[in-house]
């Protein structure tokens, strides 16, 4: 099967995302750090939508449905896939949102003073 690249900055494939989900990294914050998704030069602008789609899919919510993982604040009762999808959250965005050259940051800092 052809390789599907989800994250072009870090060359992360759809198979790698699926593998991480199968190993129990069901949450965006853990998935991000386990695969490296959304941590490259674009900081998630190119890959985050597809990653969230995977998390909202039955594959992504399998752990919560099976009681293996808790989602943020979800009840303990079994849930429908569509309800679970609503639990998927956008990961923390870190500043600077646009990567900045160190030279430019130093210059900006000097202007501040």
């Amino acid at each position: 099967m052809a390789k599907t690249i989800v994250c072009h900055c870090e060359d992360i494939t759809l198979d790698e995302l699926h593998s991480a989900l199968a190993q129990g990294y069901f949450e965006i914050e853990s998935l991000k750090r386990y695969t490296g998704i959304a941590t490259g030069k674009c900081q998630g602008k190119c890959c985050i939508v597809q990653t969230l789609r995977e998390l909202a899919s039955p594959r992504g919510s399998a752990g919560i449905r099976a009681g293996l993982a808790h989602g943020p604040g979800e009840p303990l009762a079994p849930m429908r896939d569509e309800d679970l999808a609503a639990l998927v959250r956008i990961p923390t965005i870190r500043q600077p949102v646009t990567p900045l050259r160190i030279d430019d940051i130093v210059e900006l800092g000097a202007e501040e003073e």
């Binding site: 941590t39 490259g40 923390t92 500043q95 050259r101 160190i102 030279d103 940051i105």
Partner: peptide
């Protein structure tokens, strides 16, 4: 100096 900072926390 020419390298970019991409993230801070």
């Amino acid at each position: 100096g020419g390298a970019r900072i991409i993230r801070q926390w």
